[in-house]
Computed example of a mutant assay.
Amino acid sequence: MGESAPGHELPLRLFAAFRAAVDAVHDDLARAGHEHLRPMHGFVFQAIGTRGTTAVELGARLGVSKQAAGKTIAALERQGYVERAPDPHDARRKAVRLTDAGRDVLDRSARTFARVRAQWADTLGPDRLERLEADLADLTPGEIWRLDAPGWFGPER
């Protein structure tokens, strides 16, 4: 390839690859009737998880205020993806849980990400993709499941 690319190109290419994978997921979700979901919602669904959470915990996981988390919860509740219920461990709190529709989104997303990875393996070769994944793991310290991207990208920092 010759001369090195400028330093700013690498993070842009990494983001473009991330964007391509996420766009593929949202194309599939739209075809399945979930056309109003946005990439930020994926972080929300992951942060809620299969066990549920509270608005305060959700805000902390996403790196946003409790109020911002509450607005997101209310919007997803109106769309049928989450529900609020009494917290079984603390009657003063409301738990936020995924509905069947929310779990369907997570399942469909996982299948699409697996398909995208398989396509990348076809393009690069499985060994090269595994080396790329190992190299990225070496370059990215800490927890892979950082869900605070909405807060990191947002105006509050």
Rank of each mutant, 00 (worst) to 15 (best):
R19M: 06
R93K: 15
E3F: 13
L29A: 01
R19G: 04
G70H: 02
R31P: 00
D100W: 08
L98G: 08
A114Q: 09
T99D: 05
L106I: 14
K94R: 14
R103M: 01
R93F: 04
G80H: 05
D90N: 15
L58R: 00
A114P: 00
G151P: 00
Q67K: 11
R51V: 10
G52S: 09
A21V: 03
D127A: 12
R108N: 05
A68R: 13
A95R: 15
A60T: 09
L76D: 00
K66L: 03
A16G: 11
R31G: 14
P150Y: 04
G63S: 05
Q119V: 07
D100C: 03
D87T: 06
E77H: 08
R78D: 14
A68K: 12
P6G: 03
R84G: 07
R61G: 02
V96Q: 05
P11A: 09
V105F: 05
A68L: 10
R19D: 13
I144M: 02
A21Y: 04
P6F: 00
A17G: 13
S109C: 11
L124Q: 04
D104K: 10
D135G: 06
L132V: 15
F15I: 00
P11N: 06
L10G: 03
Q79D: 15
E83T: 12
S109K: 10
G33Q: 06
G59A: 08
E35F: 10
D100H: 13
G154S: 13
V22E: 15
V116M: 11
V44P: 03
L29W: 06
E133Q: 14
R115N: 09
A24T: 04
L132C: 14
R131T: 03
I144Q: 09
R31E: 15
A24L: 02
R108C: 06
T72S: 12
D138M: 10
D138K: 09
A30W: 01
K94A: 13
G102N: 00
R51S: 12
R38N: 06
L139P: 02
A17P: 08
Q119L: 13
T54A: 13
R146Q: 05
P150I: 04
A60F: 06
K94W: 05
A110Q: 13
P6D: 06
E3T: 13
F18E: 15
G52H: 09
P155C: 00
F153L: 15
A101P: 01
E57N: 09
A75Y: 07
D148C: 01
L139N: 07
G70M: 06
